[in-house]
Nucleic acid binder design. Structure first.
Lengths: 194, 194
DNA sequence: AAGGCCATGTAACAAGTTACATGATTAA
DNA sequence: TTAATCATGTAACTTGTTACATGGCCTT
């Protein structure tokens, strides 16, 4: 039954979301080598999709085998700029039309809180403080980004994704604002509050 | 340099977030076998942490080797109920105090939109519609859950995590509400709107 | 007690992460 | 020109996912 393992191949779509994202970037900004693609991804879609350089190289290999991308001549350090092919463009369109997979949300800080009865309140406040700083920064970034986008050129699809980021950060901020009243045992002052 | 691979062992904390979540559950609700633990996790922390049964079994093995959990007598289908040990309790406390890892947010639907200029507007509306339905359901679930919790027994730490879920869903809803004005080319009626 | 359906566990695979190797480039 | 740093790519490992195997339980 060893050859039966082939049956798993067709059980999933031809493209995973990461590969699709890479095709999308190559389609929008032209030929790139692995490293540049990775850095562009960080900037352009990193807020809702993470991918590391290693992933990029692995998917590049796959996409090249599928002839969804093709490489130009080798540059320094055997780097090659890949460009999307017609088949790749079609594959991307197919992926887009197939509809997105479910989102993945993993928030370790909620685990920390869920099981947080065992943490010293002071330490928990500290953890939440760091979380708040990080997200305040991100929030500011989104606000600024939205302002920039409305003045200069504007791809409405890009604007829509940035808007999501801002609303998400706003929700986090609201949650943080409410937390002290939800967790009085963590936030209450040692002094009496009458 | 083969034995050098050992050096990777200490480069990370002893516990990953999934293992910590499992310890937390065992600590809160008592001995469970792999399958029950998996189902409890779905219900209790599934909104911000996913883990599959396969992961659970793999981590159970690891945690047993570390003596963070121990098994009771074998039941049907060689199932064993695991309970947390004192060392496990300490390991959980250590993990909690170490502070949470960064959150992981992966939203394929934002990729779809970011590269969505190539989709038929009708299809994109359809995709967004399905997304909306799914999240409307979740939103209702959270609202109901919060109401329940305020009447009956209430672990404030649990309430805090549920509150996050509701705010997150509210943000998604707000985003969906704004989308038509952000993406007029997708949502505009074919008829004149004068 | 036979058939179908769940509960439980396992194995194979895919994706994500970390650490490293090594050629290019820059600057002293 | 040599040392330091960066760009680019690779390999090893961890984590997450999917599909399957199999034994017990329930229903008729």
């Amino acid at each position: 039954m060893d050859e039966g393992t082939l049956s798993t191949v067709d059980s999933q779509g031809p493209l995973n979301s990461t590969a699709a994202a890479m095709l999308g970037l190559l389609a929008q900004i032209g030929p790139l080598n692995g490293n540049s693609l990775s850095r562009c991804a960080d900037v352009l879609i990193g807020d809702y999709w993470t991918l590391t350089r290693s992933q990029v190289y692995r998917e590049l290999q796959t996409l090249e085998e599928l002839e969804y991308i093709e490489a130009g001549p080798a540059g320094p350090r055997s780097s090659r700029d890949f460009s999307i092919t017609d088949r790749g463009t079609q594959a991307l369109r197919d992926w887009l039309n197939a509809g997105p997979a479910d989102e993945v949300i993993r928030m370790p800080i909620l685990l920390t809180i869920r099981f947080g009865a065992d943490i010293e309140p002071e330490r928990l406040r500290e953890i939440l403080g760091e979380f708040e700083v990080r997200h305040r920064t991100k929030r500011g970034f989104y606000v600024e980004l939205e302002a920039d986008m409305q003045t200069s050129r504007n791809d409405p699809f890009e604007i829509a994704t940035v808007r999501f980021g801002r609303l998400f950060e706003a929700a986090i901020n609201e949650w943080l604002t409410e937390l002290p009243s939800l967790l009085p045992s963590v936030f209450k002052e040692p002094t009496s509050e009458e």
